[in-house]
Amino acid sequence: MIRPDQLLCPSPAGLYCPPGDFYIDPVRPVDRAVITHGHADHARAGHGTVLATPETLAIMAVRYGEEFTARRQSLGYGETTSINGVEVSFAPAGHVLGSAQAITKWKGMTIVCTGDYKRREDPTCPPFEPVPCHVFISEATFGLPVFVHPDTRGEIANLLGSVQRNPDRAHLVGAYALGKAQRIITLLRLMGYDRPIYIHGALQRLCDLYEEHGIDLGELRPATIDAKDGSGKQDFAGQIIIAPPSAIQDKWARRFPDPLPAFASGWMRVRQRAKQRGVELPLIISDHADWTELTDTITEVDPEELWVTHGREEALVRWASLKGLKAKPLSLVGYEDEND
């Protein structure tokens, strides 16, 4: 059989497949790209051909405009295509709408590249499916044993509890615009919160797109206040407002009555991180696998070899070596791990 690095190998532009002549989630423009999901550091504009799930293609079109690539090639979960003789298919990654693991097969060798993934409840996308493979390429955003995220619904309950205790304060929830925001909204709805949820303007198009894909977000209203007379300001007391994380500390936040800054992110596990950002209500909710999910998934998939990329590779590689599993860091550059 061939060596795995004959099928996929790291290169400055990203993970490259020499026989198929394509890249997975390239960080610079290439002729042919396979994109796992729509987050900006994985899905960039300007490639010749983009192969992705229909949802991911739609997300890219919303973010970058219809001209984001010269040619689109849509491939649903479970469907298979061939690129220069290399078999490529997608399986759900459970990360955000349209997120997929890229499965490549050639000359008897199977490599699964997870992109980003998680194993927890997310009403906005199908759950992660383990796929047997020779090499499993796992992300490691939260690849340290200190990252064990608590129960997601418990965190949503903390948010609801705070709204109840502080009816005079506007709850500003910082959440990444693609995926996290919509997941929080659907979880709030599942836990019985039926009041209107206010959203920052930057979330509107992506929320619309989720609705178009059949994900019910309930009543959303724009979080706008008449700038001239400030009328309606008090209407936001005790309401939930969802915004991109950067807006929480921006001038934008000042329009609301006694804003209470919250932030939904796996990074909120570390208290000092929350404090540094001025977050009063940390919500430990992540779209990435935590340490337990990472190690359980690797154990479940049971590959012959583990490659670890973007995040804290070292610790996961160490864990694998203690288990007697062959593992190496891929050291790909260009992926941001702050976006959770």
């Binding site: 340290l144 044993p145 064990v148 596990r269 203690l322």
Partner: peptide
């Protein structure tokens, strides 16, 4: 209870001994 190398990597990241132990 915890591998020394994994602990060291974690402590290095979290920065506070008490918090590292509480999480790990």
């Amino acid at each position: 209870r915890v591998d020394a190398e994994l602990f060291a990597l974690s402590y290095d990241y979290v920065g506070d001994l008490g918090e590292t132990i509480s999480l790990i």
